[in-house]
Design a protein around this nucleic acid. Structure first.
Lengths: 213, 213
DNA sequence: GTCTATACACTGATAGAC
DNA sequence: GTCTATCAGTGTATAGAC
C-alpha cells in the first residue's frame, strides 16, 4: 500500500521549506547591504542555521540572490500590468498609485533589494530592464497617450509620469528611515502611509486633470 | 628670504590634493557598492595608487567614508535652505525642484552614496536626520503652510510634498540605469533631464495651483 | 541532513625597506 | 612618501565525520 511516489525528485517538501526560510533571511540581509555587502554568515545566522548547512541548500551566494531578484521584478510590475486600457483613466492611475504604495508598505525589503541592484548598475539584469520592462512600459505609455489624446488626462510626458509614480511610492520603502526621522514620533507612525496616499492622490489627480478652458 | 611658513602644519598642499584624488575615487566606489560592499583595494586602484599608500593618507576605510557623507548632506540641503519665505510661492517651489533635479544630473554619485546609506538604515547618521534635517524641514514646512493659508498654494501635506520632490528628482540619479533602459536610445540621452524638468514643472505646478472656485 | 574542520582567496591594516 | 611584504581576520566554499 505504501508507494514511493512521494520522492520521485530530489526536491522534497522539507527542502522547499528550508529554502524558503533561507530566502526570507537572505531578503533581510541583501536588502540592507546589497549583494557584495552581505555575507553568507549573516544570512545563515538570520536563518538560524550554520553556514555549511545553508550551503547545502544553495550552492553559492549568487544562487540565493538570483531567485530573489527574479521574483521581485515580476511582483513589482504586477500593478502596472493590471492597469486597464478600458477603465476610467484617472481612477486607473489613482488605483495604480495606491497599489504601488501598498507594496512599499507591505514589501519594503523587496523594494530595497531592487534599489540596491539599481544603485550598482543592475549587472546581469540590464537586459531584462531593456526588454521586458521597456516593452511593458511602452505598452502602457501608449494607453496613457490615448487617454491624453481623448482629453481625459492632461497632456504630459507619460514616461516621466510613470517614473514619478515609481519614485514617489518607492521612496516610502527605500528612504523609510529618513521619512520617519523627519516626521518624528507623532506623524511617523503607520499613519504615514495614509497621509502619503492622500497627498499623492491630490498631487497626481489634480496635476493630471484635464484643464477646462 | 625664503620662509618656512609654507609648512607650519603636517597638512601640506600636496597632501590635500592626494586626499582629494582618493575621495573622488572613493565616491565612485562607495556610491556603487555601499560601505560594506566596497573594498580599499578597489578605491586604491581607482585612485591610481597602492593600498598601503592610500592608507597613509586615510588611516581607515571609515575615515574615507565619513567626510564624503558629511559633505553630501550639507550640499544636498543647500537648495532647500535657499527656499525664500518672501519669494513668490509657486516660483520658489519650481526653482527648488529645478535645482534639486540639476543636482541629480550633476552629482549622481553623491545621490547614490546617500541612497546607499539610507538603504542600510543610516547607522551613525540617524541622529543628524532626526535633528538638523528635521529642523530644517520643519522650518520650511511652516513657510509652505503659510503660503497655503494665504491661498497662494493648494492645500496639501507639506511634508509629503517635500518627500515627493526629493523622490522624483533623486530618482533620476539613483535609478538612472532603469530610466535609461526604459527610455531607450532615442529618448534616453542627456535630453532626459529637460524632459523630466518639464514634466515635474507641470505635475507640481498644476498640482499645487490653488483652485479657483 | 547537519555538523566540525578546513582549504583557500580576499580584506583591512601595519611594519619596515627604500 | 611610496613601495614590498606580511599578518590577522573574514569570506566563500568544500570535505568528510556523524
Amino acid at each position: 500500500m505504501t508507494t514511493d511516489a512521494e520522492a520521485p525528485r530530489p526536491i522534497t517538501r522539507i527542502q522547499r521549506e528550508k529554502q524558503e526560510v533561507i530566502l526570507e533571511a537572505a531578503l533581510d540581509v541583501f536588502s540592507q547591504f546589497g549583494f557584495r555587502g552581505s555575507t553568507i554568515d549573516q544570512i545563515a545566522e538570520a536563518a538560524g542555521m550554520s553556514k555549511p548547512n545553508l550551503l547545502y541548500y544553495f550552492k553559492s551566494k549568487e544562487d540565493i540572490h538570483a531567485p530573489l531578484l527574479a521574483r521581485i521584478l515580476d511582483t513589482w510590475l504586477e500593478p502596472l500590468r493590471e492597469m486597464d486600457p478600458d477603465g476610467d483613466p484617472l481612477p486607473e492611475i489613482q488605483s495604480y498609485i495606491r497599489r504601488k504604495l501598498e507594496m512599499s508598505r507591505d514589501f519594503p525589503r523587496e523594494s530595497r533589494l531592487f534599489a540596491n541592484e539599481m544603485l550598482r548598475g543592475a549587472p546581469g539584469f540590464y537586459d531584462i530592464l531593456h526588454t521586458d520592462l521597456k516593452d511593458l512600459v511602452d505598452e502602457k505609455v501608449k494607453i496613457i497617450k490615448g487617454w491624453m489624446a481623448e482629453g481625459k488626462v492632461a497632456k504630459a510626458d507619460p514616461y516621466h509620469l510613470i517614473f514619478s509614480i515609481w519614485a514617489t511610492t518607492q521612496h516610502y520603502a527605500d528612504f523609510d528611515i529618513q521619512v520617519k526621522a523627519v516626521l518624528g514620533r507623532e506623524r511617523g507612525g503607520e499613519g504615514r502611509f495614509e497621509d502619503a496616499a492622500r497627498f499623492l492622490d491630490q498631487l497626481f489627480l489634480h496635476g493630471l486633470s484635464p484643464k477646462k478652458r
